[in-house]
């Protein structure tokens, strides 16, 4: 009986947030799903447009390519950081963690704006290079894929580090010691033992970065300067300017289904809370 009341009281406490999420979030999301099949008319026309319209296919291709490159660079660089943190002394690790967390907290808008100031046409980098006499005209660092990539990788690295850190700290150090005692070189130990043991972390980190990149809006919109169109910016134009809800809803459903499927895949390698809680 006591257990029952405990359970009931549990439900009562969850209810307010549950109601809010159902009414304010899940319901409206379902509405978007519904719209993708009913606007402008009922049917699958929004989805068949994917096969018919070259522009939509190019949009998806650009998005996927940038997400894949962002994932690759973020995970490689993140691996380097996570490896150093795992092998650093306690004091150094705390300092490294502090820098990582600060970068986590800095607003994406401020970071993107910083890249504009640094990489822009009249930015610090171009001005510096020109006054040093290395170049005669400004180099195009932004308003292209390069700028978008720099901004996105910079934002995503911490998200790659956390799952990797979790995976690396779970490795039993005695396995490495055993490998070396049995005569393996440090390089062999790294490639044959360490890297395979961290594979779940690498997969989880890659999936997490890819998922976050898929719907990323701020950095591509600003650093792409209208030249590099990714799905999120396309959706905002369809909704706020051309008012084509059907196409926007179809793209949203596509992204959302991909995100949820990839998250389910990711949970087979690492719990989401563990992936993001690697900081503890």
């Amino acid at each position: 009986m006591a257990a029952l009341t405990l359970r009931t009281s549990g439900w009562l406490l969850v209810l307010p947030l549950l109601g809010l999420v159902v009414v304010m979030f899940a319901g409206p999301l379902f509405n978007i799903f519904w719209l993708s099949f009913t606007d402008p008319g009922p049917g699958l026309s929004n989805y068949t447009a994917l096969a018919e319209r070259e522009s939509l296919r190019r949009l998806l291709w650009v998005t996927l390519r940038i997400c894949a490159l962002t994932t690759l660079f973020s995970v490689v660089l993140g691996y380097c950081i996570a490896y150093a943190m795992t092998h650093a002394g306690e004091g150094a690790r705390q300092k490294m963690l502090l820098l990582l967390l600060i970068s986590f907290w800095i607003s994406v808008l401020v970071r993107t704006f910083a890249w504009i100031m640094i990489l822009g046409r009249n930015g610090l980098l171009n001005n510096g290079l020109m006054s040093a006499g290395l170049i005669s005209a400004p180099l195009p660092f932004v308003r292209n894929e390069l700028g978008v990539l720099i901004g996105m990788v910079h934002y995503m690295i911490p998200y790659a580090v956390l799952p990797l850190l979790g995976a690396m700290r779970a490795i039993d150090g005695r396995v490495m010691a055993a490998s070396r005692n049995l005569g393996a070189s440090p390089a062999q130990t790294f490639w044959r033992i360490w890297l395979p043991l961290t594979k779940p972390g690498v997969i989880a980190a890659s999936l997490l970065v890819f998922i976050l990149s898929l719907g990323f809006y701020v950095t591509p919109a600003i650093l792409g300067g209208g030249k590099v169109l990714m799905v999120a910016e396309y959706i905002s134009v369809q909704v706020l300017i051309t008012l084509k809800w059907g196409t926007a809803a179809m793209l949203a459903v596509l992204i959302l289904v991909s995100v949820l499927a990839l998250l389910a895949l990711m949970s087979r390698f690492m719990k989401l809370s563990a992936a993001l809680g690697g900081r503890a």
Binding site: L6, R7, S9, G10, W11, L12, L13, V14, L15, L17, L18, V21, F25, A26, P28, L29, N31, I32, I211, L214, G215, F216, Y217, A232, I235, S236, V239, A248, A249, A252, I255, L256, V259, L260, L263, L272
Partner: peptide
């Protein structure tokens, strides 16, 4: 509340975390 329910609350917890995993642009549309 979830802590009191302990067993079987996994799905409910996942549902409540939904706003965290949906890309902001899609949340904005909704």
């Amino acid at each position: 509340g979830l802590w009191r329910m302990s067993a079987g609350a996994g799905l409910l917890r996942a549902f409540l975390l939904l706003p965290l995993v949906v890309p902001p642009i899609i949340a904005a549309m909704a």
